[in-house]
Design a protein around this nucleic acid. Structure first.
Lengths: 197, 197
DNA sequence: GCAAGTTCCGTACGGTCGTGCTTTTCTGTT
DNA sequence: AACAGAAAAGCACGACCGTACGGAACTTGC
């Protein structure tokens, strides 16, 4: 890895942290350069446009999410344990200072067309697909009701995470995470296959 | 109402619409002035600072929410009908072009201290209080389990709304609202008092 | 240890931001 | 109709934004 690549990654890692707090459009070349001990033009040279920077920040955040959440989850036993592993890791990811960068970015760009929004939509779709897949695996294992709606489960679970994010972050509610876990319990209880007959 | 007050309100109403799309920090004096057919300084004179403008936008949004959602809800029959009325009106409010202005503002300011954030927290707390009150009324009516957790219900319901907001707005999912209603059904089913013995 | 190429800095430009000041235009009252 | 006060315009400012370009400083391969 050349020197350039090295500093580029360092800048991106820093930028992801900043974006958690101020969002993608809150990022500025100047302040990022300052934090990286670079000149504005020095930093700019690595990206050539602000939009490219934002896209790469998004990509880096996605990589991190896959490392810390998505991939490890697939190593947990199929079905309910895997769902719980997902929730655990997701909550941990979300609890990082500044919260989840995608949540911040999502509400910024949900009405602003462009490459960033497109990328964001793709990532969010992938996330939903990941959830439904994990859930459907549980169905295939016979742990969840055969006619349970995976898309419904995904949206519900996402809502639990968002509510936790907001309650904890904005309102400073210490019990938000605990409530989120209870909500997941209820979700799972509703999906669990009844031992009928 | 003098002329000044009249244009001030017109500007604020316009600003609320804009803030739904670009957030509170996305508001700029210049573009607002253009839309209001005013000069920058002409508009600025009504607020004297951008932060004051943001605060007044927040206040106007709150007024609107109370008119369109909070107050009418209290006229619905206590208990489950009232909860459903809340969900109905809230979904309608949220479906307005640009979505809910508070959702946009909340993730912008959840990590940026200041008067705007403080105001936002207050409003959000009031919203949660409203939900818990509506729910507890249902408990008092005997429609919901006596030991049901109103705070849990509020966070869950808020999550349903947020998930709907994001799925519909960012992902363009047409079925998001329908899923939200199903989620509310499940929530209510879980809270409904069992006709035991 | 020198040449080639990458990495970074200095500086500058046009633009927009929020914000003051002064002056003109409009409103409402007597 | 005249006048006092409010409302809006005009203009200027300093700051910061993203972007561009040329040269200095450093790496790297030979």
């Amino acid at each position: 890895m050349g020197k350039g690549e090295e500093t580029r990654l360092a800048v991106l890692d820093q930028a992801v942290e900043v974006a958690r707090r101020v969002g993608l459009s809150g990022l500025t070349i100047g302040s990022l350069a300052e934090q990286a001990h670079l000149s504005k033009s020095g930093l700019f040279g690595h990206f050539n446009s602000k939009e490219a920077l934002q896209l790469q920040v998004l990509e880096r955040a996605r990589e991190r999410f896959e490392e810390e959440v998505a991939r490890p989850v697939l190593r947990a036993p199929r079905g309910e344990p895997r769902v719980r592993e997902l929730v655990d890791r997701w909550l941990r990811w979300d609890a990082a200072p500044g919260g989840c960068p995608f949540v911040a970015a999502a509400s910024e760009f949900d009405d602003q067309p462009g490459a960033v929004r497109d990328r964001l939509v793709r990532d969010q779709r992938d996330l939903f697909d990941m959830i439904t897949t994990v859930f459907r695996t549980g169905v295939a294992e016979g742990q969840f009701e055969a006619d349970a709606d995976a898309d419904q489960f995904a949206q519900d679970l996402y809502g639990v995470m968002l509510a936790c994010h907001h309650a904890a972050r904005l309102l400073g509610d210490r019990q938000a995470e605990q409530r989120a876990r209870r909500a997941v319990d209820a979700l799972l209880a509703g999906a669990r296959s009844r031992a009928s007959s």
